[in-house]
């Protein structure tokens, strides 16, 4: 079913075949879940928010515009839900990242060197400002294009190029320093 674009499927959902949404859920829920984790949402809440995104997609399916990028729309919704989450819980996203990101060995068998590396990466990510985490998550982990990120965050592509570079620079400095220890 991979030959079907997200947009084709979403149009079908919009026309009332809501079961088609499960195809999109299969494709994207893991990315959404990780986006939430990486922006500082706790494990179980990340799962809840992921469900909420799809619920909202279904609820507002009629507002989905033909030809609009689905992933862009999905992450716009996700970002709004995430902000709302932090607002209502009065929890600052600056706080530490969910423990699961660091407890790698609990989840999978992994050689210790690799484990160290991933831990270092997330610890570095934990130390940078939330806006930068968001950009890095969208761009590097979820593979979103600059144009899409610009739209999602409501800024220009030109600004994103620079912001992205700065965010990654902060991450690099922290990460390589960490690795040095």
């Amino acid at each position: 079913m991979d030959w079907l674009s997200d947009e084709d499927i979403m149009l079908e959902v919009k026309q009332g075949n809501i079961d088609a949404l499960s195809l999109l859920f299969k494709r994207h829920h893991k990315h959404l879940f990780n986006f939430f984790l990486q922006t500082g949402v706790e494990y179980h809440h990340s799962e809840d928010l992921t469900q909420q995104v799809f619920y909202r997609i279904l609820k507002y399916k009629d507002s989905y515009r033909e030809k609009a990028g689905f992933r862009k729309w999905m992450f716009t919704i996700a970002r709004n839900i995430m902000r709302r989450h932090f607002e209502t819980r009065k929890r600052h996203p600056e706080q530490e990242l969910p423990a699961i990101l660091l407890n790698i060995s609990e989840r999978q068998t992994i050689d210790s060197e690799e484990e160290e590396r991933i831990k270092a990466l997330y610890k570095a990510l934990e130390k940078i400002p939330p806006q930068d985490r968001e950009l890095i998550s969208l761009s590097r982990f979820q593979g979103m294009k600059y144009e899409d990120i610009a739209e999602i965050t409501g800024t220009t592509v030109g600004a994103i190029k620079v912001k992205m570079h700065r965010a990654l620079k902060k991450l690099r400095d922290l990460y390589f320093e960490k690795a040095d220890h």
Binding site: D19, S22, K30, F33, N34, T50, Y55, R107, L121
Partner: peptide, 24 residues
């Protein structure tokens, strides 16, 4: 970039898909 690329994504809870189906 390569490092990040080689960082596996965390798996969502196993019942995520079941919950989604229930919602649907």
């Amino acid at each position: 970039h390569l490092q990040i690329e080689h960082t596996p994504l965390i798996d969502p809870p196993t019942d995520a898909e079941r919950r989604f189906r229930q919602m649907l």
